[in-house]
Design a protein around this nucleic acid. Structure first.
Length: 865
DNA sequence: TACTATCCGTT
DNA sequence: GACGTACGGATAGTAT
């Protein structure tokens, strides 16, 4: 069955991130779970073939001799299947010199004799002989999920013989997969006819001389072969076995072991299915959080009880709006309907939530803070965000919903599976599940802290990420003011340019209109109609991206290409502008959402809309920033950005004296580096030299190859390589650092930033070159990008602290990875600039200074200069 | 409506 | 044969 699964599921779709193939394990396990669920067997065992020969190969060395060698991707999966079985509490059977089918035959007989009803699941047709009124065969029709049920009647119908006569039929027909040739000219129809005429193989053999026709002649010429076939395809039902059939009783799996094996195999959906068979979750196989909470006191909560809580309390807020609040502490959980509060209760609850002395634990706290704030409720005293904690534990993990995290950290099955299982007397299942969620969060809070402590990330968590939640919350609520009229104007300009470009494009190809936004239609025009040379291959044909079009233009200048690029540019800008216009809220401001739990490096991300990718490179795009303006009661936008933060971190981490000197000297970095690399005085560094070393420097932190550098600079690969060699001969410690970082990460399994933030990279030890190369580039980049993220986050907290310490009304409103934007109140500009300069520079104690550029203006474009 | 593929904006 | 990180998001095209 595992073999069937192997060939039924594409191996390229089933592998762990380290490249271990799992298609056979997955398919086999999924089939097993289905069978356990559908058939609910009392006793279960899985029989294995062992390596080495069997009594059959001893008898006939060519037995199964035509089989191709076992695929190399299959073999390592067999022990993994055994691990799954062990975790599941399913007995694995094997016996040297015998095949799995002999074990199946023996145990089928034993089960039957013990009065059991037996199901045999096998992809080997020989097992048809085991079928009788107590034994049914499940035989795969296709893959492993589509099993056909062979009862005695079904066997007769399909083969025309009784199950016990099937080996007779197979002996006559032969079995290619076992390398047992049959009687030439005799197929299943003839064989069945003979068996029924002569009453079985014995009868046929003893009357062989009377069997008529060509087939009869053929039979007489192959009698020995038929006898041998029959001998070999007989399954042994009387093996000596040490495990009695009673011992195969299925008592369920071990949830910890199931988690372990699912972690190792990176099974996601299957995990929950397997856990359903765990025997050790309290209350049996269907246990979820519901059972745990059964011990809790859960009641519709009088607000007086809730506001009396001190210490640390876990909270849960519904996903939609904060119409209710779940609370939990210790083994108790409550839920409060916020829509039905008396004025006094509301006041008491508001005061309790705003009391920083009461610790609050939440999952995805910032969302909850917004929902509660919309209801006029402010929250202070956030000590834990279990989503944030789970992210830090493994920032590349992916799904971070409460269900996912509870499953990962606590082994709890998704609450959805538990819905409606218990009525805890809250009179509404939504309130009830809210209380339950709060309790899950309470349990998680402790577990996540344990993991973080083990990884030495508690400081990063408690003193950086958790406080940052409040900072980001405030920034999102503040938003950024927008000049709607300016956006409208810019939109008109961009649309006009797009229109003109489209017309030019159509005209250049004879007046036919095509959808210039459709890569598919562009391919038709470029490669069919215009007969342009093929660009790089993509899934749907040939690429029409900007770099491919530029390359095409080099080879075949054509007005269509120019018009197309201009159209791309203009429509992209128009699209960005429209997205921004749609995002302006009633207060005339755009409120983005920053996420702390998306980027695997520790950066923030911004969405709805993304304010971290507003154009700046082209003049047309840059003008969009004019529409981001200072708001009504404020006076100035002040922006501050780190100068070459990543190169500075590289200098610090590598300890490269030459690079450190470059930053300490205060000279232009790329001029300094260029002078060293090219061996000329700083004033002798040409613009081209500077450009080359600049690209080289930036590329370093991304794992740039000589090939990539040559492409970017338009140089032959040899020259790019020479440039890299020269670079590293001057900045050798940088190279040593970069190779060292990959080596260390491969050893540890993760990279670390200056402040201890981790990123796990299991692919570093992958046997797949491409995956490993990608992981190596991630390992190069993560400590650098991540340390930069740590630094600016520290700066943000420090800036906020200074602003409130100095009693200023100014506020942070945006962060763009190395840049902060502050909306400054009138008269506070100088103070704000000083705070930004000081706190950003002091965010870390590096061996190089952290230079900060500051600008002011009434809009982002001006301030950004 | 949900999903994938492609393309492109930022750092 | 591949070849620079990290993201969010629009549009086109296809499947359901």
């Amino acid at each position: 069955m595992a073999f069937r699964a192997f060939f039924g599921l594409p191996v390229e779709n089933f592998a762990t991130s380290t490249g271990t193939p799992t298609n056979a394990v997955y398919g086999f396990t999924a089939m097993l779970a289905t069978l356990l669920n559908d058939r609910k067997p009392t006793h279960v065992a899985v029989a294995f073939d062992l390596p080495g020969g069997t009594f059959r190969t001893e008898r006939l060395p060519s037995y199964k001799g035509t089989r191709d060698e076992t695929p190399p991707d299959f073999e390592p999966q067999v022990p993994l299947i055994r691990e799954v079985l062990e975790a599941m509490g399913v007995t694995a059977l094997d016996k040297p010199r015998y095949e799995a089918d002999d074990l199946l035959a023996t145990y089928a007989r034993m089960g039957r004799e013990a009065g059991m009803e037996v199901l045999v699941v096998s992809g080997d047709r020989d097992t048809i002989q085991l079928v009788n009124e107590d034994v049914t065969l499940l035989y795969p029709r296709k893959g492993v999920s589509d099993l056909v049920e062979f009862t005695p009647d079904a066997v007769v119908e399909k083969y025309g013989v009784l199950p016990g006569q099937y080996p007779d039929l197979a002996a006559l027909v032969g079995e290619t997969s076992d390398n047992l040739p049959g009687v030439p000219g005799v197929g299943p129809k003839t064989a069945a006819k003979w068996i029924n005429t002569y009453g079985g193989l014995e009868g046929i053999l003893s009357s062989a001389d009377d069997v008529p026709g060509k087939a009869g002649e053929s039979l007489r010429a192959h009698l020995d072969q038929v006898r041998l076939n029959r001998e070999l395809n007989h399954l042994l039902t009387d093996l000596e076995v040490s495990v009695p059939v009673e011992a195969l009783e299925f008592g369920g799996g071990d949830s910890a072991a199931i988690h372990q094996v699912c972690d190792a195999l990176q099974f996601k959906g299957l995990r929950a299915r397997l856990l359903a068979f765990a025997a050790d979750s309290e209350g049996g196989p269907e246990v979820t959080e519901s059972e745990r909470i059964e011990a809790l006191v859960v009641a519709p909560a009088p607000v007086a009880d809730v506001v009396a809580l001190t210490g640390s309390v876990a909270l849960a807020v519904p996903g939609t709006d904060a119409w209710a609040l779940g609370l939990s502490q210790g083994d108790k959980a409550w839920a409060v309907d916020l829509t039905a509060l008396s004025e006094a209760d509301e006041k008491a609850l508001a005061a309790w939530l705003a009391d920083p002395g009461v610790g609050k634990v939440l999952h995805g706290a910032k969302d909850a803070l917004h929902a509660l704030a919309d209801r006029g409720l402010a929250v202070e005293g956030l000590t834990d965000d279990t989503q944030l904690g789970a992210y830090l534990v493994n920032p590349a993990q992916g799904r971070l919903d409460l269900d996912d995290v509870a499953e990962r950290f606590l082994g709890l099955r998704p609450a959805a599976a538990a819905a409606g299982q218990l009525d805890l007397g809250l009179g509404g299942s939504e309130l009830e599940s809210l209380a339950r969620s709060a309790h899950t969060v309470a349990l998680l809070g402790e577990r996540v802290r344990e993991d973080l402590a083990e990884q030495r990330m508690l400081d990063l968590y408690g003193n950086l990420e958790i406080p940052l939640v409040g900072c980001l919350f405030a920034m999102e609520r503040a938003g950024v003011a927008v000049d709607a009229a300016r956006l409208e104007e810019l939109s008109g300009l961009a649309l006009g340019r797009a229109e003109k470009a489209a017309e030019a494009a159509y005209e250049s190809i004879g007046g036919t209109a095509v959808n210039l936004g459709s890569p598919k239609q562009l391919q038709e025009v470029l490669f069919e109609q215009l007969g342009m040379p093929k660009t790089k291959k993509i899934k749907t044909g040939y690429s029409t991206d900007a770099s491919s079009l530029a390359e095409l233009y080099e080879k075949r200048p054509h007005p269509f290409l120019e018009a197309l690029l201009a159209h791309r540019d203009a429509t992209k800008l128009a699209q960005i502008i429209q997205t921004l216009r749609d995002a302006v809220r009633a207060d005339g401001r755009i409120h983005t959402t920053f996420s702390q739990v998306v980027a695997a490096t520790g950066r923030l991300s911004s969405k709805d809309p993304n304010l971290q990718n507003i154009p700046i490179r082209t003049d047309e795009g840059h003008r969009i920033r004019e529409a981001f303006v200072v708001g009504g009661t404020y006076a100035t936008l002040v922006t501050a950005d780190y100068s070459q933060i990543e190169m500075r971190i590289m200098a610090h981490l590598s300890g490269d004296e030459a690079l450190i000197e470059a930053f300490r000297s205060g000279e232009d970095l790329h001029r300094f580096v260029g002078s060293r690399v090219y061996g000329v005085p700083p004033e002798g560094v040409t613009a081209e030299m500077r450009g080359h070393v600049k690209a080289m420097s930036y590329g370093l932190a991304y794992g740039l190859s000589s090939f990539g550098l040559s492409r970017q600079l338009g140089l032959p690969v040899g020259e790019a390589q020479a440039l890299m060699d020269d670079y590293f001969s001057r900045f050798g410690a940088v190279r040593d650092y970069l190779t060292g970082v990959v080596k260390q990460a491969a050893k540890d399994g993760y990279t670390e930033t200056i402040f201890g933030r981790r990123r796990y990279l299991p692919d570093l030890t992958s046997t797949n070159r491409q995956r490993r190369d990608i992981a190596e580039r991630m390992a190069l980049n993560a400590p650098i990008q991540g340390s930069a993220a740590d630094l600016i986050k520290r700066a943000m907290l420090a800036v906020d602290a200074r602003i409130s310490a100095e009693g200023l009304a100014s506020r942070q409103i945006l962060q763009v990875h190395d840049e902060l934007v502050i909306e400054a109140a009138a008269g506070e500009e100088d103070a704000v600039e000083a705070i930004l300069r000081e706190e950003m520079a002091a965010a870390g104690d590096l061996s190089v200074p952290l230079d900060v550029n500051v600008g002011r203006g009434t809009n982002w474009r001006v301030a950004g200069h």
